[in-house]
Design a protein around this nucleic acid. Structure first.
Lengths: 240, 240
DNA sequence: CGGCAATTTGATATCCATCAATCGGTGTGG
DNA sequence: CCACACCGATTGATGGATATCAAATTGCCG
């Protein structure tokens, strides 16, 4: 399960993340599995670097990417005894590992930490509900526009770019494959390709290799994404 | 935001719901609005009777039903200062109203209540992620099958039917309109109609008026819904 | 530079949306 | 008690968006 926000340093509201201070790190190779669905949920993780994906795969092989995880994100909590999702590395990554028991103790010992944790989960809920709206109501290229703004947002946080107009933000890195994107957006990889092409044809962006785009018309991209309809537009745009 | 589980009486884990003991009740007429998106989020509610819907409506009029609410469900919490969804009555309903401050105090005063609350939110997250999988990966009639099992589940809880084979569970009540169902499943109402017809043609069920169906082949319905792929199959089936 | 995998592109099929009647209850008034 | 009107649901005909299947192309890594 994903967490939004925090760059490298803990924001005031993320104080519970200090359970990861000095925690053992694990190095991940692309494709490597961190969590398999069905395992006992006795560990929680914090992403230090790299990108991971959270997936649910049906018995018939259909796969939904529930979320991508970026540096600062927390993952591993469930209401039940076992994980109901898998987590794998998309890029080489480093994650901090912590027994779930430690988190429980930390939350039990510190009222503020527990409150912070609850707040994080609530933000996660809002983010997921944004996805529900996208999957239920938006077209293929609208979903792709949303996704690109989402990547841009994460680059801004990870690189700590305070200014939304920073020219470095014109380039959006796309660490995952077309198939990962497709499974996240509820599409097929061919459709993702065609949607990229459409955005390029409409001059909203330029493809630069398979893993980067240059945004030509940010306002139009936001308009297409329907940014006004997000619960948390501040996560995707500085204004509004 | 939806909550899963609890029948009329509080389960041990839902102790925080006692904030609604003696709270003022409000009577709702079908279609009546409880919460409008954008309002200050200063109240929380508990459904006493009836069915409500939680919606997000885009600036262009597209509407996604994020969840339906049943007796025992809790609504109204957000991470932010304002609601980012609307809540309306589907049927005549009664809800208990409580200032959000009271909930905050209750959670601050009682460690167990706060823990219970966190647990509820985590269950909500699991339920929403089930929806994400459905919207992203399942076909129209698969989604309808999932939805019918979901209604059956709620009837079982509200009527307190311990036995999953109780003959009363062969009848599923459908309190909402085809359009509400469509907006929940990310489909159009005509498609919902045709999906009903398909399930009827395949002899999984019989339509009995617009607001009830009789299940003829529960096992097949579950198979179609892909019940094995749920995070919380226990919420839809007693076994597994 | 070769070779493989990922992506793109093209042709076609399928599913769902759209638009337009028609049907079927439900409630009202004659 | 029946005729009528209304509204939601169904059905039918058609269109459009995305999926599928099958190359061709590109990018990438040794």
């Amino acid at each position: 399960m994903p967490a939004p926000e925090p760059p490298g340093l803990h924001l005031p509201q993320d104080i519970f993340l200090d359970i990861f201070d000095g925690a053992p790190l694990r190095e991940l190779v692309p494709g490597e599995t961190v969590i398999s669905a069905g395992e006992r949920a006795d560990q929680v993780f914090n992403i230090v670097s790299g990108v991971l994906r959270v997936c649910r795969t049906g018995t018939d092989g259909r796969r939904q990417v529930l979320s991508f995880l970026f540096p600062g994100n927390f993952v591993g909590l469930t209401a039940t005894e076992t994980y109901f999702f898998s987590v794998e590395a998309v890029t080489p990554a480093r994650i901090a590992c912590c027994p779930r028991r430690l988190l429980d103790e930390r939350l039990a010992a510190d009222r503020a930490a527990e409150r912070a944790f609850l707040n994080m989960i609530l933000r996660v809920v809002e983010d997921i509900l944004d996805s529900v709206y996208s999957l239920g109501q938006r077209t293929a290229s609208e979903r792709l526009a949303v996704f690109l703004l989402y990547l841009r947002h994460w680059r801004r946080l990870t690189d700590n770019l305070a200014n939304d107009n920073d020219p470095r933000l014109a380039e959006i890195d796309i660490p995952m494959s077309r198939e990962d994107i497709a499974d996240f957006l509820g599409l097929k990889k061919e459709t993702v390709s065609r949607s990229f092409k459409e955005l390029e044809t409409r001059r909203l962006l330029l493809r630069r290799g398979n893993h980067q785009v240059r945004v030509l018309d940010l306002a139009a991209l936001r308009e297409l994404a329907g940014i006004r309809d997000f619960a948390s537009p501040r996560r995707l745009s500085q204004s509004l």
